[in-house]
Design a binder for these strands. Structure first.
Lengths: 208, 208
DNA sequence: ACCCGTGGGCTAATAGCATTAGCTTTGAGG
DNA sequence: CCTCAAAGCTAATGCTATTAGCCCACGGGT
């Protein structure tokens, strides 16, 4: 009975394969049994390398978040302003479309209490920092930067979620719709930076 | 052995209770066993009223989507333009925050192939129609309406997803960030309607 | 060269889930 | 009052994670 020679890293690598093969909800369908089968090993053997299914999910999530971060960072290096925002948006959507399972893994919010999720929290914070760095170029008042970051994340994440979930059923060009959305975002943060009201002539009506 | 007197509607009602009690991921944790226990019945008995767990999920999803639709419709009746967009956005977010489990149920895209999902598809289409109706007031060129609807859905959905998932960890006011996002959206569709470029002075740089 | 301990694999067992098959009994309508 | 469809049941299958405990492979030291 020769050994399989597994390591924690190898198990995570196999888990990523399972996620990738599962399409958009490959992450949801990630299972210890599938990983074990791929490793040619009995399911309980995985516990020698990984604490639990939840822990494995967390490790997969960390990898995915880091990939998203570096994709965004690579796309925006050397750019600034509207150019950088567009590059970031397209990089994120590109990653999500190319790796839908991993992008789904990105969604799971790190548990703020669990101390073993520190790495996860760190990775998530770094990915947000990429967006913050890009938006800092718009000379926003400090207390508005967070609003801009949230707006950018919401717009991009929302579009990608709906796209991956099959929420856009009309045959119209998705790329163009995404471009329009990002243009709105760029115009919005530009207006925010210039200190002028986002809505030039429209009166501020009651939100509630 | 008296009968429990279940009906399909009663089972769905109990399933909604389970979803509501489960918080933001109550929908993910919906289980036939929990519904059966709540009904005071053995799990297999539910199959007399519901085809499968997946079918029950679909029914729950239809209810949630319809609630979201009527919430949006009720909030926008008698309003138009920016006012209506803001009302719709706040109604959607309000529903998501008040009923996070049901909002999650809203996310599952209807299977375009499955004929038994016709009701689901119909409900989803109606909810999009509410947004389309509101945005039609902006006198958009026909081929841009779909872009505007997608932008609105993306922005609102993205924000809500990140909020419910705990993705916004800074203590800054979420309501204000949401307001800023919706202002950007309103400004963006306004610009789209006026036929002027979304970005007045910023040159269109290569997105790729 | 041997020996020994760590640790990586195993099987067995428990417990929770969905689902199917087939039996029993309720209770409403003729 | 009788009957039969429908609504409940138990039993069984097969999937999942997880824990306990065993055994042997293998690297490091004597």
């Amino acid at each position: 009975m020769p050994r399989a020679g597994l390591t924690r890293e190898a198990v995570v690598r196999l888990a990523l394969e399972v996620v990738d093969d599962g399409g958009p909800d490959g992450f949801a369908q990630l299972t210890l049994a599938k990983v074990a089968s791929r490793a040619g090993v009995a399911t309980p053997s995985l516990y020698k390398h990984v604490g639990s299914l939840a822990a494995l999910r967390r490790e997969v999530s960390v990898v995915a978040v880091r990939e998203l971060t570096t994709a965004g960072a690579a796309a925006t290096v050397g750019r600034s302003g509207a150019d950088a925002v567009r590059a970031l948006a397209h990089a994120w959507r590109g990653y999500a479309v190319a790796q839908p399972g991993r992008y789904a893994a990105t969604q799971v919010g790190p548990d703020p209490d669990d101390p073993s999720a520190a790495e996860h929290r760190q990775a998530a914070a770094e990915s947000v920092q990429v967006a913050a760095a890009v938006l800092r170029g718009f000379a926003l008042p400090d207390e508005r930067l967070v609003d801009a970051v949230r707006a950018a994340r919401s717009a991009i994440h929302g579009f990608v979620m709906l796209e991956l979930g099959g929420g856009f059923r009309l045959p119209q060009d998705l790329d163009r719709s995404f471009g329009v959305l990002i243009d709105m975002l760029v115009a919005g943060v530009t207006a925010l930076g210039e200190g002028r009201p986002t809505l030039p002539e429209v009166e501020q009506l009651s939100p509630r």
